[in-house]
Lab assay of single mutants.
Amino acid sequence: MQNSHSGVNQLGGVFVNGRPLPDSTRQKIVELAHSGARPCDISRILQVSNGCVSKILGRYYETGSIRPRAIGGSKPRVATPEVVSKIAQYKRECPSIFAWEIRDRLLSEGVCTNDNIPSVSSINRVLRNLASEKQQMGADGMYDKLRMLNGQTGSWGTRPGWYPGTSVPGQPTQDGCQQQEGGGENTNSISSNGEDSDEAQMRLQLKRKLQRNRTSFTQEQIEALEKEFERTHYPDVFARERLAAKIDLPEARIQVWFSNRRAKWRREEKLRNQRRQASNTPSHIPISSSFSTSVYQPIPQPTTPVSSFTSGSMLGRTDTALTNTYSALPPMPSFTMANNLPMQPPVPSQTSSYSCMLPTSPSVNGRSYDTYTPPHMQTHMNSQPMGTSGTTSTGLISPGVSVPVQVPGSEPDMSQYWPRLQ
């Protein structure tokens, strides 16, 4: 039975679970980093996980050691009161100082060594604690504590007292930064006198190289990059290397530039699409467009005044059976039934097929058609009795279509119309 579990990581490298990497692998990681390889490249070359490479390099940059820390136990506290007071002093002298600059000053002034120097995250935590204590304490208590930490007896009751030896409130920041720059020169002199001055200088240079600022491109470089971006948004590694040799930039910087440029292009394309949609959409909808001609068919113009009344309900007709019959029939052209047409008796099958359309009241044959006459024609229609054979009435077949029909004066039988409509 094995005491430890061995495995293979996602890159194909072998590791022992819970145990640190061998010293030979750690040394190779540092050597590759000094030669300029990126952590992701080191991870692929040595088949070590990216997190492990970053952790080893980060500890090497901070402490200069590649040895693993002790497994188990607690780390001794490195942010001692003396170190905290120095950090507060540096922050007062130059409020814009960075944590890694404070760390360098602690090393250069001999406050800490490589073994007990606090990390950048520890210094940031100390600065946050100082800021929170400043908010919790009152103004007087804060000034007393700062005077105690600074070891001075001057008056701290006013704002300019934060910067000793100065009279203009805006000047101390520059003086403090100048003092810090002077301390940086002392850093070089002190570290050069040490035993491991060369190694420390190499480590600091490598650290500065990794902690780079934003790349500033010249106009020629920007023009070359934009020209390549117009050709393709995704250049391959050969195109990037050719462009890197042409404009004297690292291939990694060119790759990052193209990634950022593609993101910018997507944002601009989104804005262009929004403007295009806004320009195509009308600002207001016309009133006429809300009524579609496919839904509402136009009603033909009436030929006679009587045809303006298109349904039985508008003429005072309360018989719903006839109203439904007229509205359900398709529109037909106007025609006239003459008196000489043969009077065919209704076929029983045809009569039964339209039995649902006729009223059940037996008085329908005896009703006159003056009910369908509009009010303004009552006088004219009353002067001509319906009993004469020459009287013409208008029957409504569908809305908007008038059918003048000659009705025999002897017997106005409704059943004569249905064979004609089939």
Rank of each mutant, 00 (worst) to 15 (best):
S85H: 11
Q27R: 14
G141E: 11
C112A: 06
R59N: 05
R69I: 03
S85V: 08
E101P: 04
Q135A: 15
L11E: 06
R103K: 13
Q10E: 06
G7W: 09
R103Y: 05
L21K: 02
G138Y: 14
R92H: 10
K55H: 04
D115H: 15
A37K: 15
S43V: 04
Q136Y: 09
Q10K: 15
H5T: 10
R105F: 09
V14H: 15
I123L: 05
S35H: 11
Q2S: 12
D23G: 08
A70C: 08
C40G: 05
I42A: 01
C112Y: 03
R103A: 08
Q27W: 11
F98H: 09
N124W: 15
R77I: 02
G110V: 09
N3G: 12
I102E: 04
F98G: 05
I87M: 07
A37S: 08
S74K: 06
P76L: 05
S85W: 09
D144T: 10
G72T: 06
L107P: 08
G141F: 12
I29L: 05
L11M: 07
L149S: 15
N9E: 04
R19K: 12
W100A: 07
P81N: 09
S6F: 15
P22W: 01
S24E: 10
E82A: 14
G138K: 15
A99Q: 05
N114G: 12
G110K: 14
G141V: 11
V84C: 10
V8N: 05
I56Y: 02
E109I: 09
C112Q: 04
G73L: 02
G110H: 11
N116P: 06
R26A: 01
L149A: 14
P39M: 08
I42K: 00
W100H: 09
R92G: 11
R26E: 01
P68M: 00
P39K: 14
S132V: 09
G51N: 01
C112L: 05
H5V: 11
T113S: 11
S108G: 14
S35M: 13
S43P: 02
L106E: 03
G72V: 05
L106P: 02
G73H: 03
S85N: 13
P118I: 07
E109F: 13
E62F: 03
S132N: 14
C52V: 06
E82P: 15
A33S: 11
R103N: 04
Q2P: 11
H5M: 09
R92V: 12
D41Q: 13
R69V: 03
N3Y: 08
M148L: 10
A33C: 07
G141A: 10
L149W: 05
G72K: 05
S96G: 09
G58A: 15
T113C: 13
I42N: 01
G138N: 14
C112T: 08
I42S: 02
F15C: 03
R19G: 02
R59A: 04
V120I: 08
G73C: 02
V16M: 15
M137H: 12
Q10C: 07
Y143M: 13
E31R: 08
V84L: 05
D41S: 08
S24P: 10
V16P: 05
V16I: 12
R67D: 06
S35I: 14
E82R: 13
E133T: 10
V53F: 00
K55E: 03
P95R: 15
N50H: 02
F15E: 03
Y60I: 07
